[in-house]
Amino acid sequence: MNDHPRISDFSGSDLDRMIPDESRFTAGVLIEPGKSYGFFTDTTVCIGCKACEVACKEWNNLPADHIGLTGQSFDNTGELSANTWRHVAFVEKSGCGGVRDNSEAPYQSGWLMLSDVCKHCHNAPCLEACPTGAIFRTEFDTVVVQQDICNGCGYCVPACPFGVVAVSENDGKAHKCTLCYDRLKGGLEPACSKACPTDSIQFGELSDLQARAAVRVEQLHGQGVGSAYLYGTPGAPGATGGLEHLNAFFLLTDRPEVYNFPVAPTRASNRVAPSLLSGLLTVAALATAASFILSSRDR
């Protein structure tokens, strides 16, 4: 019998301590400081079960929010927020190939589901905008808000091109996915990817995930899903405007805007120099005009 190696290593059902480096068994990756980690979300296998949303809320002790029904398909979560760090989007496509069609091409052609999350951007605009240094890059190359330093100014909120980070009305601080920073430090893979029953969310070292994703796109193309492409890998859509790449990237089968993703996200810091320059030019132009008017009046 071919037993999984974990069975002989940990035969007891009543563990008296944590399994060291548990992520080796659950995600096939050893978590070490100094390396880049992220998520590869393959939307073609997401079944919309929301296990990721629940696992995130459970682990992070986040309250349920936006109580009520949205009327938007099976999505009553609505959006990412200060208390919701994973959001499973349900996109019902209508018309030919839509959810009401009698026949469907493979891989969720009519009904798209995607588990959205903070992208842990390589050049994170939220981090660049934070005036207190509360948002920092961790030793695992992820982006985290340090709660005791955040003063709730909210500068990060408009800086994020994906609408991820939000300031809570209850504690006045900015919140978003931490890529389970505390779990990574303890050798555990993030709660959402561990809970995902179809491996739509895969956690791992970024270079491994990017290679795995490229193979998956090729496989889907071979199976007739020519629309499959990556969003957030270097040079791909989503990694535009100086973001370089997203540590949480996605495999999509429709245009980014169908999933409520920006087509070409940019860094807010790219706009600082042009804005400053145009402001200075405006002041100079007004001062010149004023001096011209005043001097012509004196004559």
């Binding site: 309250p63 349920a64 929010d65 936006h66 109580i67 208390n83 009305e169 209850n170 504690d171």
Partner: peptide, 9 residues
């Protein structure tokens, strides 16, 4: 009571 959450402040 918290605002828009099932939780307290």
């Amino acid at each position: 009571a918290g605002v828009d959450v099932i939780g307290q402040v």
